[in-house]
Simulated assay, not measured.
Amino acid sequence: MQAILDSAEAIFLRSGYVDASMDEVSLLAGVSKQTVYTHFGDKENLFASVVGRVTADAAARVHYELPDPVSVSALPAYLEDYARRQLDAVLDERVLAVRRLVIAEAVRFPQLAETFWRQGPSRATDEMRTRFARFAGAGLIVTPDPAASAIAFNWMVMGYAINAAMLLGVHAAPDHAERAQIAAEATRIFLAAHRA
C-alpha cells in the first residue's frame, strides 16, 4: 500500500488530479490496477489518502504532545517553539505542492478541498483551541474564546509565510531565522492581549 501511495503522490503532483490516471499509478507502484481499486476504491479516495498522509506527516511534526507550560514565564518559549514547528511543517515543499494542487482543483472537486481543510488547517486551529482552553483553565492566559484566539495566533504565525510561499514559490518562504522572528513576534503580540 505504501508503494501505491508513493506512486499516487508523485503522479498527482506531476500531472494534477484530473490528468493523473490509475493506470499510471499501478504501473509506477508495480501492482495491478485492480489492486489499486481494491485498496482505495476510486481516484478520489486515493487522492484523499494522499492528502491525508501528507497532512498527517506535517501534523505529527507540530501536534505531538508536549507537557503544558507550568507557569506564565514558560509560556513564551512554548508558543515560539510551537509556532516555529508549525511554520516548518506548512512550508515543507511536499505540503505546499499538495496545497497548490488542492486549491487548483477546489472549484471542480470541493470535497478534495474539504478533506485538506479538515486534515490540515482546521485540525491545526482545533488543536491550538484545545491547548488555549487548557492554558486558560490553568490561569496561564485570559481568553473568552479559545477558538478565536487560536485562529488569531495561527494566522499571525502563518499569514505572511504561507502567502509568500504559495504565490511566489518556495524560494520566497521565510528562512529559519525569519521563521524564528515571526514566531517571536506572533507570541509577543498574542501574549500582550492574552497574558494572565
Rank of each mutant, 00 (worst) to 15 (best):
G16R: 02
A113V: 08
E105T: 10
A184V: 11
N163C: 04
W155K: 04
V98N: 06
A193W: 02
R129K: 00
R61T: 15
A184H: 09
L79P: 10
F153W: 00
R99T: 03
D126W: 10
E185I: 13
A89Q: 02
K43T: 13
R131E: 04
S15N: 12
D23G: 06
E105R: 06
S15Q: 11
R123H: 11
A113H: 09
L79D: 12
A183H: 02
I141T: 03
Q181E: 12
K33Q: 07
I162K: 11
A150Q: 03
V72M: 12
I162A: 14
H39Q: 11
L66Q: 13
M156V: 12
A60M: 07
V102P: 00
L75S: 13
G52I: 04
R61V: 15
P69W: 08
D57M: 03
R14V: 09
V36T: 14
P144L: 05
E127H: 03
A3T: 08
I182A: 11
A3L: 10
A104M: 06
P110Y: 03
L191Y: 14
A83W: 01
G30V: 01
E65M: 06
V107M: 15
V25P: 06
L167M: 10
S15T: 06
E65N: 06
V54S: 08
A186P: 00
A48C: 15
P174N: 11
T130K: 00
P174Q: 07
Y64K: 06
A97C: 03
R61C: 13
V142C: 02
D175H: 13
D92H: 12
R100A: 13
S26I: 00
A183K: 04
Y37H: 09
A164Y: 01
R108C: 10
Y160D: 00
Q34G: 13
I103P: 06
H194C: 08
E9T: 11
Y160M: 03
A56T: 08
P76L: 00
L13Q: 14
H171R: 07
H194A: 11
Q34P: 02
A83E: 08
